[in-house]
Design a protein around this nucleic acid. Sequence first.
DNA 1: CTGAAAGCGCTAACAG
DNA 2: CTGTTAGCGCTTTCAG
Lengths: 336, 336
Amino acid sequence: MTTIKDIAREAGVSVAMVSKVLNHPDCGRTETREKVLAVVKRLNYQPNHAAKSMINKRTGMIALIISDVRNPFFTEVARGLEDAANKNNYRVMLCNTDNDPLKQQSYLQALQGRIVDGFIISVASEDSRQLKKINRAELPFVLIDRECQNFRTDAVIVDNRDGAVKAVRHLLNNGRRRVGFIAGKQNTQTGRERMQGYCDALAEQGIAVEQQLIKEGHFTISGGYQAAKALLELPECPDALFIANNAMTMGALRALTEARVRIPKKIALVSFDDVEWAEFFTPPLTVIRQPTYTMGSLAGEILFQRLTEAKQSEIKEIVLRPELIVRKSCGSSLNG
Amino acid sequence: MTTIKDIAREAGVSVAMVSKVLNHPDCGRTETREKVLAVVKRLNYQPNHAAKSMINKRTGMIALIISDVRNPFFTEVARGLEDAANKNNYRVMLCNTDNDPLKQQSYLQALQGRIVDGFIISVASEDSRQLKKINRAELPFVLIDRECQNFRTDAVIVDNRDGAVKAVRHLLNNGRRRVGFIAGKQNTQTGRERMQGYCDALAEQGIAVEQQLIKEGHFTISGGYQAAKALLELPECPDALFIANNAMTMGALRALTEARVRIPKKIALVSFDDVEWAEFFTPPLTVIRQPTYTMGSLAGEILFQRLTEAKQSEIKEIVLRPELIVRKSCGSSLNG
DNA sequence: CTGAAAGCGCTAACAG
DNA sequence: CTGTTAGCGCTTTCAG
């Protein structure tokens, strides 16, 4: 590999001079500068990253820790983060945990060797012990999507309860009375908040929560399928469905198709999470859209600020509002 | 940050001893080892990554350069690569180029500073100049999905022609005679190969290619929408559709829905690329599935081998076969 | 304006 | 078995 020494030799100057020319635009005589720059170009020289970061105490890299890149939710977050990162001259490293705290721990460990300058994380569990061990001043990080228990730190999250309320309220406002709910894991914050929203929206209109209308779908495709099937077999079938995430929606959709249920005629449907294909589905799906790209770029901005600020400013907790996107599956009167 | 010096001081040994204990399982007296390890644990010490990679000439990182993580095709590749990487004790850095050669160049430049030990790339253009500048012995790389012109190097690609032939042949075998084709960009290898496959399959059955049945959809959603619309407006409407990628399929599906065309009754449909939602669509989509996860993990394996082999073995070019997944949209007789 | 030298945190000879 | 020392590639004082 070409090193700074090679450049120095070829250009007939010292390594110190090369370094100065490269790092300080207004250093050295014009003649010297040009001489050095010419050799740099000719030899296609690129400073060694490890050596630089050792001195600068800056790697120019951040990590994004999520459960799985294949989830369109995270994919969008990743893109938002990467765009923000590039704008700030950072690169992004990707870490999939599959929601396994052990995998998460292994990544966290590695990151503490200063592979990166900071990281964004959607935690694998609500347990805050792993993160509490990390010195935020040395290795700043920002939580996204989920928070930890008893642990206040920088975070960008979504108001899940609000999203669920909007969904169920919309269904109710369009005349539906028996709204089935395919819930997510109740040992997660997002799962519980969406459940809360469902209950709150019913309460608003004085409708009692019926336990049999609520099925847990574990946030998975097969869970959604099973839950939808169970709901359809109820003696008194629901006339609407609120589904707590995109994976379960796919499963539920299959169950509804198999049972030849007409959407929205027989059952109206609103799903949490907007995905690319939702608007191309027949009928196009009414959804609660989370501002995922924004979540990624905002989390990035907060992190980059931490990385440059002289002394720690106060903790930033940003709560984003999800948005109801009315399409056809909800049978809204707006569609005529 | 805790350094090796801190450990040495606390444990009452030299830094060399700490290094040995940490890197060579059978070094030092048991007593010494335990003393050191205890301090390491107590201080939550993690060796500095930059310092290590400077000496070892190994960063333990590789990069994945693709056009966009949001494309499910690449997302699956990314996951395959990351799993392979972790198995080999590597981490993955993500680079989106948006198919912009300038962005690609900027990443390539940075990588040459030895941020990573090697990389996997789906090239932004067929022009091989950027890659030819890179010394494969110093910074190995493997191409995926697309190749470059006049540039033989390690690559894992898919037989696109074969995939297209399988799709169109299947349509023909099920009695369709006027197969419309929404083609991808013809200035890309994948676009041209799929076109070739379309023509070859027709030729097999002695059917002449009708130019009016072929529309370019640029591999985009809106392009697919426009192309499908144009095809539907033909005086003699096609009775089948072969679409060259997932994005265009979404667009085409919308056009078909708007025109209230029954699938597969009026128009049978086969699409290139399998995606998560394809099987949940109504009707479930018959597709050509590319082995994307495998592509990622295989490319990884080739790279990791390069990173460990003493001297360069011969160039590896792997051509994967895509697979026809018969569901309902093709109106196959297999479905009864 | 330029160069010599120290040092970032770590590992690998080499000596003791 | 353990410690001393040199040096990875680079930047930054500090002299000249």
